[in-house]
């Protein structure tokens, strides 16, 4: 396997990691605000705060890792995406900035400030929507290279059913993943009232998720038949994903094994995400960048891979420590520490 394949695999794993941890975080913000509106915040907001406080910064680093890595492994991506994404990218930055800082302001400063909670909840849905634009663009047809540089075709983007279906999928998946995680976390904390509530959310958001996935597939077949065909060739990946989806929903429905249910959710998205990614290759950005044409030089590519491995040796034990202390320490989860 060439270093460019290692590179894209590594980056894709990190994007997948971001997808999971950020979804939990984004969705939790929305649920916290929703609970406040419906006066149920006393039931679950403590639970959310206990999980989120120690990890939000780590979540952000996953994202930074992805975009720094893509510039490192595929410098052409900086050139094309950089020019095309000025507006959507800036909007995403602003939303992320508002979210991160107001979370800290709320959490460490003024408790229960209504405006902060609202910003925190609303950005949780808007950020996935704006970030998903980058994936939409990668399908081609929305970017034009002229003598004046690279242009994003806003008309095409805003009128494309595909781009809207991706936005919709991003939002419902966030809510689904998050509710599934909170269900597990509430059961660990042995917090029955919160569990009842988040379990309902989890079941509620499962059907829109699967519907949105199907719609996106259909829209893709219209927008980019070639990619669709490659995805169909990988049908088994998506089949496994659906099987895990059903397993997860069944477990939650039957009210048992919430931990396994969340693992099933992770696998559901793992297979769907890697199925999508694998069928996307060789393109990074159709038709301008392919995995081979856009890759950095071999020396740099190999150096990055080495550094990456060394970095993992440092990070995995530290992450493990973090999880031991906050996620899997039953006393902490229950609020005894």
């Amino acid at each position: 396997m060439g270093y460019e394949y290692i590179g894209i695999t590594v980056l894709w794993i990190f994007l997948y990691g971001y997808l999971i941890v950020a979804s939990v975080d984004f969705g939790a913000g929305f649920f916290a605000y929703y609970a406040k509106l419906t006066k149920k915040d006393h039931i679950m907001n403590k639970l959310i705060a206990r999980y989120l406080s120690p990890v939000w910064e780590v979540t952000n680093v996953f994202f930074v890792f992805f975009f720094v890595g893509i510039v490192g492994f595929f410098p052409d991506a900086a050139f094309y995406y950089g020019q095309a994404l000025l507006i959507p990218g800036s909007i995403a930055i602003i939303l992320l900035a508002i979210r991160g800082s107001f979370y800290a302001f709320e959490n460490y400063g003024s408790k229960d400030n209504h405006l902060y909670m609202f910003l925190y909840g609303a950005t949780g849905l808007l950020i996935p929507a704006s970030l998903s634009t980058a994936l939409t663009l990668s399908e081609g047809g929305f970017i034009e290279e002229t003598a004046n540089g690279v242009q994003l075709l806003y008309g095409e983007l805003l009128s494309s059913p595909y781009s809207w279906s991706v936005v919709f999928l991003a939002i419902v998946s966030v809510l689904y993943i998050s509710a599934m995680f909170l269900t597990y976390y509430a059961s660990r904390a042995n917090d029955q009232p919160a569990l009842e509530l988040v379990r309902k959310y989890a079941l509620f958001w499962s059907s829109p998720t699967i519907i949105a996935s199907l719609t996106t597939f259909i829209a893709l077949s219209q927008h980019n038949p070639e990619h669709y065909q490659k995805a169909i060739d990988l049908w088994w990946m998506f089949g496994i994903s659906v099987a895990f989806f059903m397993a997860a929903v069944l477990l939650v429905y039957s009210g048992r094994y919430y931990g396994w249910a969340f693992i099933a959710v992770m696998f559901q998205f793992f297979f769907a995400f890697f199925g999508y990614g694998a069928s996307h290759l060789p393109y990074i950005l159709q038709p301008y960048i392919t995995i081979t044409s856009g890759a950095t030089h071999e020396t740099m590519g190999i150096t990055l891979v080495i550094v990456f491995i060394a970095g993992l040796c440092l990070l995995v034990p530290s992450l493990y420590l973090l999880m031991r202390l906050f996620l899997f320490d039953a006393d902490y989860v229950k609020g005894n520490k």
């Binding site: 930074v64 900086a78 950095t296 550094v307 990070l315």
Partner: peptide, 28 residues
């Protein structure tokens, strides 16, 4: 960044690891 990506992405990449490391231990 197209040139920088080819030549100087190594420390940029390592910087993220440093952040990661710091963020984890700061949380703890």
């Amino acid at each position: 960044m197209q040139i920088a990506g080819n030549v100087i992405s190594l420390p940029l990449f390592m910087e993220v690891f440093a952040f990661f490391f710091e963020a984890i231990f700061l949380g703890i």
